[in-house]
């Protein structure tokens, strides 16, 4: 099979109304929460209906989304950078029936304007190897509680929330208004039966950002200076396979307040990391956000 063919050309994925008005849009308006109208220079309009998604989608769920898009949008849709689904319509008349079907199938419609958009998150226990907490679970629990701020536009401004399940922060937590970050709280343990056989000592030592790991050449293993460790899990990633298991007691989500917004004062960064509440209940797994 040919390699390096790159992604499909986006131009083949654009609905005709976008092709006709590409680069010639004039203004947009929110018709109601979750429904945006973009008007081109010629007066032609594109209607976008934005729906929430759990991000973790089964192929059957994607096919269901395709069915809806084919029924109302001639098969054109897109996803947003915050994992929402956007149905792209040419025909204004189809908005109401589309919304009725989305309501019946329990797709929340919203996330536009002064609202909370979908929570950007990471893999957590579903697929990550260094998580301090699950990701999909807390996000689901939280979205359940703040649902009404997704489907309305009654907040003073946009609010963006993100959750990352460990300090590696794969989930954009450093650039969202509210960040929820899983942190480990104990030092990795060295498994001396496996380190000498399975890992390169220099690489493991080099992997530590704080210099907490030192080689113990006599015993062909490493030692960890507990006071220097910042629980990042880098050694665990790097010294594969798995000589430094992070002990079971570590998981604990912690709340951070982040703030990132381009307009007005510009992105606000060095001052944003105010630790709002240091530790939320360690891995409480019920559907209750605090």
């Amino acid at each position: 099979m040919p390699t390096d063919i790159g992604p499909p050309d986006y131009k083949t994925m654009l609905p005709p109304v976008i092709q006709r008005n590409y680069g010639k849009w004039r203004y947009h308006e929110y018709l109601k929460p979750g429904v945006i109208m973009h008007v081109g220079e010629t007066g032609e309009a594109l209607y976008t209906v934005r729906a929430g998604s759990p991000r973790l989608l089964s192929t059957d769920h994607i096919r269901d989304i395709c069915d809806i898009a084919e029924k109302y949008c001639n098969g054109y849709l897109r996803f947003t950078s915050r994992n929402n689904i956007e149905f792209l319509l040419e025909d204004k008349e189809k908005i109401s029936p589309l919304m009725a079907e989305l309501a019946q199938k329990k797709y929340p419609v919203g996330g536009t304007g002064h609202a909370i958009s979908n929570i950007v998150h990471t893999q957590g226990w579903v697929h990550c190897h260094t998580p301090a907490t699950d990701a999909s679970g807390p996000v689901k629990a939280l979205m359940e509680e703040i649902y009404e701020y997704f489907v309305t536009m009654k907040l003073p401004n946009h609010v963006r929330i993100a959750l990352a399940c460990c300090l590696n922060m794969c989930g954009a937590v450093h650039c969202s208004d509210i960040a929820i970050l899983g942190i480990h709280r104990t030092v990795p343990k060295t498994d001396n039966t496996r380190v000498p056989n399975l890992c390169e000592i220099p690489t493991t030592v080099a992997s530590c950002p704080t210099g907490a790991i030192r080689g113990d050449m006599k015993n062909k293993t490493v030692t960890v200076n507990n006071e220097k460790c910042m629980y990042c899990g880098n050694c665990y990633t790097f010294a594969r396979p798995c000589p430094l298991p992070i002990p079971k007691t570590t998981g604990s989500p912690s709340g951070w307040a982040g703030r990132y917004r381009m307009p007005a004062a510009g992105p606000c960064f060095p001052s944003w990391q105010s630790l709002s509440c240091r530790t939320i209940r360690p891995n409480g797994r019920k559907r209750l956000p605090r």
């Binding site: 790159g6 992604p7 499909p8 050309d9 986006y10 083949t12 994925m13 654009l14 994607i62 096919r63 989304i65 395709c66 898009a69 084919e70 098969g75 054109y76 849709l77 897109r78 996803f79 947003t80 950078s81």
Partner: peptide, 13 residues
């Protein structure tokens, strides 16, 4: 690799 802008035709999905 996603199509740029995350635009899709359902056929591709």
């Amino acid at each position: 690799n996603h199509p740029t802008g995350w635009f899709y035709k359902t056929e591709a999905l």
